[in-house]
Computed example of a mutant assay.
Amino acid sequence: MTQRKPHITFWIAAGLGLVWYLAGCMNYIAQTNPASVAQMHESYQLIIKARPAWATAGFAIGVFGGAVGCILMLLRRKVAVAVLVLSLMGILLTGVFITLLVGLAPPVVLSTLIAAALLWYATIARRSGWLA
């Protein structure tokens, strides 16, 4: 299949997705910095300290994978879809931990919906020939 010119919404979705995931990367980095965690509200500190390694790994895979997936989308690479699948899986893993700890929280729902929407759009872009 020949590569076709993407619709303007492709660039908007990939760009906004990258901004979203970069904010998530900054959040992850802040949560791995003890000085930064010490300045957070006590309830956040408890969640961060209680988080097991598998949930932390899911968080890292989710946000860094999402950022890489959006960069790959902007570079119009088909592998973006696979990377965004991994990102969604990481977000779901972290969401399981948060839901078990505090119940279904709005940030979990929002993160999952955004990751799923970006994956859905990337699959549309692949089928439309916008990704090579």
Rank of each mutant, 00 (worst) to 15 (best):
1 M>S: 11
3 Q>V: 11
3 Q>G: 07
4 R>N: 12
5 K>V: 10
7 H>K: 05
13 A>N: 01
14 A>E: 00
16 L>H: 01
23 A>W: 07
23 A>H: 05
24 G>S: 05
25 C>V: 15
28 Y>Q: 11
29 I>F: 14
31 Q>R: 10
32 T>Q: 14
32 T>E: 12
33 N>F: 06
33 N>L: 07
35 A>P: 02
38 A>K: 09
40 M>H: 01
41 H>Q: 12
44 Y>M: 15
46 L>R: 15
51 R>P: 04
51 R>A: 12
52 P>E: 06
53 A>C: 03
53 A>K: 07
54 W>S: 08
55 A>L: 06
57 A>P: 03
59 F>Q: 14
61 I>H: 05
64 F>V: 11
66 G>E: 07
66 G>L: 12
67 A>Q: 06
67 A>L: 10
68 V>N: 04
70 C>F: 02
73 M>Y: 00
74 L>Y: 01
76 R>V: 00
78 K>S: 14
78 K>I: 02
84 L>G: 03
87 S>V: 06
92 L>C: 11
97 F>P: 13
98 I>C: 06
102 V>W: 04
103 G>D: 02
109 V>T: 13
112 T>M: 12
112 T>F: 10
114 I>T: 06
115 A>E: 04
118 L>K: 03
119 L>V: 06
120 W>T: 11
121 Y>I: 01
122 A>P: 08
124 I>L: 14
127 R>G: 03
127 R>M: 06
128 S>D: 01
128 S>M: 04
129 G>P: 11
130 W>L: 02
131 L>H: 01
131 L>G: 02
132 A>C: 03
